[in-house]
Computed example of a mutant assay.
Amino acid sequence: MSTNQRKPAKPSRRGTHQDAAAKHQRDLLAFMLLIRHFEERCVELYSAARIRGFVHLYIGEEAVAVGVLDALGPADSVVSTYREHGHALARGVPTDAVMAEMYGKTTGCSRGRGGSMHLFDVGRRFFGGNAIVAGGLPLAAGLALAEKMRGGPGVVCCFFGDGAFAEGEFHETANLAVLWGLPLLLACENNLYAMGTPLSVEHGQTDLAMRAASYGMPAWAVDGMDVLAVEDAAHRAVGGIRAGHGPYFLELRTYRFRAHSMYDPDRYRNKEEIERWRTRDPVVLLTQRMKSAGDLNDEAYAELDRRATDEVDRAVTAAEAAPVESVGDLLRYVTTAPGDLSEGH
């Protein structure tokens, strides 16, 4: 599997040859498998104290990242949350660079200074995870405003969780995006819980798409466990944005199979609920659909799974061998020595 920048797929699979559609679905499945194996390995590494700090896993939500980012091209921008490993991998940030960042090594995409919650890759226009709930929304609005002022073709996609609806930043961003006609895709990953608080306890109206539509933008809910449904919705939304119709909102209804973070004892959900959602595992759903259509057999699936596992294995090996930053460089990028900046710059 290549770790290069993903190329956007055609806006629709309708009318294409069946083999091309099957290959495209295999690509989607391959990325979901890569994210799944990456996250499962992070569980092992965190338990072994190889990865430290806060870690927020994306297991169960893979269809959202893979489906939405399929609609974006290299000139588009992405702003993410602290649960962003899947977004970074689906965007094409190299697996070894993401894993090295988890380790805090200098070969990481943020030179080991960001860790799990602050992945960043300016070359792929992946403008970071953000540790503050809703904190990425104003940044995304700024990027979208800059794109519009330049007259560029780019779209800015901002991922955020349902918990962001309780923050003023969402409402301010949504309002300004509509007023200014910004090329902004608001991708809400509604996994039903803001940390440990159920959506139904926090909000009187839980139809988030309807609330977003009240600002005057196209908005609808999507089955976030179905990567093909997510992909179709994302292409429709991005197409509308590129056509100059301003911002769009997608409520991607999904579920995280793991706790909020590795520190979270997860006592606010019952096992029956978790198991019920596991029956709609996005990786399994696409695999079953492809097998039923005759587009995937057990051997082909095993090969995709092996490639994903091997890629994660190589990333772990590289991260283990990578250097940590020297003590002498600890203030680099933090302070500026006198004379380093010329007057007026």
Rank of each mutant, 00 (worst) to 15 (best):
residue 90 A to C: 15
residue 5 Q to R: 13
residue 300 A to V: 01
residue 194 A to W: 00
residue 191 N to V: 11
residue 316 V to L: 04
residue 70 D to W: 10
residue 327 V to D: 04
residue 148 K to E: 08
residue 116 S to Q: 01
residue 75 A to K: 09
residue 56 H to R: 05
residue 329 D to T: 07
residue 250 L to M: 06
residue 249 F to L: 10
residue 305 D to G: 03
residue 128 G to H: 03
residue 230 V to N: 10
residue 172 E to N: 03
residue 48 A to R: 11
residue 292 S to I: 00
residue 89 L to W: 01
residue 143 L to T: 02
residue 55 V to T: 09
residue 341 L to M: 11
residue 38 F to Y: 15
residue 135 G to K: 10
residue 238 V to P: 03
residue 326 S to Y: 08
residue 291 K to L: 06
residue 128 G to V: 00
residue 189 E to R: 11
residue 278 R to H: 02
residue 136 G to R: 07
residue 299 E to H: 08
residue 10 K to L: 15
residue 316 V to H: 04
residue 297 N to F: 05
residue 277 W to S: 02
residue 97 A to I: 00
residue 116 S to W: 00
residue 300 A to Q: 14
residue 239 G to S: 06
residue 168 G to T: 09
residue 56 H to I: 02
residue 94 P to Q: 11
residue 70 D to E: 14
residue 307 R to M: 11
residue 256 R to A: 05
residue 179 L to G: 01
residue 130 N to T: 01
residue 142 G to I: 11
residue 245 H to L: 12
residue 329 D to L: 15
residue 229 A to E: 13
residue 59 I to V: 13
residue 240 G to L: 03
residue 48 A to N: 07
residue 204 G to N: 11
residue 223 D to N: 14
residue 188 C to W: 04
residue 261 S to G: 12
residue 69 L to V: 06
residue 295 D to Q: 14
residue 340 D to E: 15
residue 261 S to H: 12
residue 237 A to R: 09
residue 142 G to N: 00
residue 89 L to N: 02
residue 78 V to C: 12
residue 201 V to A: 15
residue 170 F to K: 07
residue 42 C to E: 00
residue 226 D to M: 09
residue 48 A to E: 14
residue 80 S to W: 06
residue 86 G to Q: 04
residue 81 T to G: 08
residue 329 D to V: 01
residue 316 V to T: 01
residue 60 G to S: 07
residue 43 V to H: 07
residue 116 S to G: 02
residue 48 A to Y: 03
residue 171 H to P: 03
residue 253 R to P: 11
residue 177 A to C: 06
residue 44 E to P: 00
residue 288 Q to D: 15
residue 287 T to Q: 14
residue 208 L to Y: 05
residue 314 R to T: 07
residue 65 A to F: 08
residue 195 M to D: 10
residue 50 R to E: 15
residue 16 T to W: 14
residue 77 S to N: 00
residue 81 T to D: 02
residue 283 V to Y: 11
residue 188 C to K: 08
residue 3 T to M: 12
residue 126 F to T: 13
residue 104 G to R: 03
residue 61 E to N: 08
residue 50 R to G: 00
residue 35 I to V: 13
residue 98 V to M: 05
residue 219 A to G: 05
residue 129 G to I: 09
residue 223 D to C: 05
residue 226 D to H: 09
residue 3 T to Y: 13
residue 171 H to Q: 02
residue 290 M to D: 10
residue 255 Y to C: 02
residue 94 P to K: 04
residue 104 G to P: 11
residue 78 V to T: 10
residue 289 R to F: 04
residue 169 E to P: 00
residue 184 L to K: 09
residue 11 P to M: 08
residue 310 D to N: 11
residue 322 A to I: 03
residue 92 G to Q: 08
residue 157 C to T: 09
residue 282 P to C: 07
residue 62 E to N: 03
residue 228 L to N: 12
residue 130 N to F: 04
residue 178 V to G: 13
residue 209 A to I: 10
residue 289 R to T: 07
